[in-house]
């Protein structure tokens, strides 16, 4: 689980990258609060071979990354 709410890019992508490197988990949930970060994290995850599901959590964005 990566909570990148409140951060602007490139931080959310770097946080996601660190989580992937650390856990190599098959499923990672990433929370962000702006659409730029939502798109950038999704694109990054896809380039790392994850499938991305987009969801909303209130005004924030929830990304579910699955291998």
């Amino acid at each position: 689980m990566v909570d990148a709410r409140g951060y602007a890019c490139p931080k959310p992508v770097l946080m996601t990258e660190a989580e992937i490197n650390k856990t190599n988990a098959d499923e990672i949930i990433v929370l962000v609060d702006n659409r730029t970060a939502e798109n950038n994290v999704a694109n990054f995850a896809m380039s790392k071979g994850y499938k991305v599901t987009h969801d909303r959590e209130g005004r924030d964005f929830k990304l579910i990354l699955k291998k």
């Binding site: 709410r5 409140g6 951060y7 602007a8 490139p10 931080k11 770097l14 005004r59």
Partner: peptide, 13 residues
């Protein structure tokens, strides 16, 4: 520095 973990703290609503 970004790679080493530089950050300005998070923002809030």
């Amino acid at each position: 520095f970004l790679k080493k973990g530089f950050e300005l703290k998070r923002n809030y609503d």
